[in-house]
Design a binder for these strands. Structure first.
Lengths: 183, 183
DNA sequence: TCCAATATATATCTATTAGATATATATTGT
DNA sequence: ACAATATATATCTAATAGATATATATTGGA
């Protein structure tokens, strides 16, 4: 599953500009599928070439012409097919856990700062999800929010329950890292 | 933070071949930073060019020469700097949640199958983490496993607690999806 | 009233990455 | 005996992330 598929999904919810679609990626999709302009505009271009979307240009003064995209029947069909065929994978890329994995190489203050920063960021993510949860949404969309809340909350609890011991243990065993255990 | 940094990290644990490093990505790193051969070999090449790693070739009969990489002082310094400077971000890419978000477009059996498949996959991930947890590991590495277990367990609980109602509600409100709520 | 911050819009570019693919023998387990 | 897995080296290409460019309108605070 790729950015083009998500753009089709965004347009299945209603006509939108590239700028509107970016906002969806930044808000409703943000906790499970991020994308930037660098991927969105080329994806829309490709989808238009493939006949899966079409667009109207709305001339604007002193601004680039607005392109309002809409999904076509071809695009809708392709989108449904992708929803049927895509395996429900998940993939986490966590720089936070990389830093924890190599915590024995971090100065103590840095370790403490990283944990605090991760807690702060997680609280912000929860606030965003709380805001999303207030909306009247279909069941599936609500579920994605609950899911995001559940795993973010679990992350927060895990950090809070372990950080004191982690900081103590890392400091106590800085030179005991045994690489051969990992192979 | 990128693949090269993680390769430096892997080599900070001990000398290794590209194949060994791939195994680390598939095991100890797998729940927070995946990478394949397509990224690892070019990363090692680049690091060697930059003087951050060096390698010995060990001739083998009937197989490509073994390249055993080791981190250099330059590389270790660069790695520590990266650990100090990298913000502790996290990013989830979840095709599962995309499917849930658009659940109103899925046939009921497909929705049920996706949920079950995600549960099955999460159980497998827990088993892998359980296996990793049995090893004698430094505190930071242990923490990454606990963290992975906490969020995977939370995901499982969330799916189990919500799946029946989700399936019922999605079927009941298939045509009530209101896109304007998302903008 | 002024001005900084934010919103609204379109994009392009390039280094990195994911995943597929290639090659090929040794070892292990059924 | 043979299939499956392990051990090894890679390359290739389409997709992506993130930075960057351009530029005005609107909003909110001082």
């Amino acid at each position: 599953m790729d950015i083009r598929t998500l753009c089709l999904g965004a347009l299945s919810l209603g006509d939108a500009t590239g700028y509107d679609i970016k906002k969806l990626f930044d808000e409703a999709f943000s906790h499970f599928f991020a994308a930037g302009y660098g991927s969105i505009y080329p994806a829309l271009e490709k989808l238009a070439e493939e006949g899966k979307v079409a667009y109207d240009r709305q001339q604007q003064e002193k601004r680039p012409d607005r392109k309002v995209f809409r999904i076509t029947a071809t695009g809708r069909e392709a989108f449904i097919t992708e929803l049927i065929d895509t395996p429900p994978r998940e993939k986490l890329r966590s720089e936070f856990l990389v830093l924890m994995f190599f915590a024995h190489l971090l100065p103590p203050q840095r370790l403490a700062a990283v944990l605090q920063e991760r807690l702060d960021e997680s609280q912000r993510e929860l606030a965003i999800l709380e805001e999303l949860a207030r909306r009247e949404l279909p069941a599936g969309m609500k579920f994605t929010i609950h899911y995001g809340q559940a795993i973010t909350q679990a992350a927060i609890v895990c950090i809070k329950e372990n950080q004191a011991r982690l900081i103590r243990d890392v400091n106590a065993t800085v030179n005991e890292c045994n690489p051969s255990t990992l192979r």
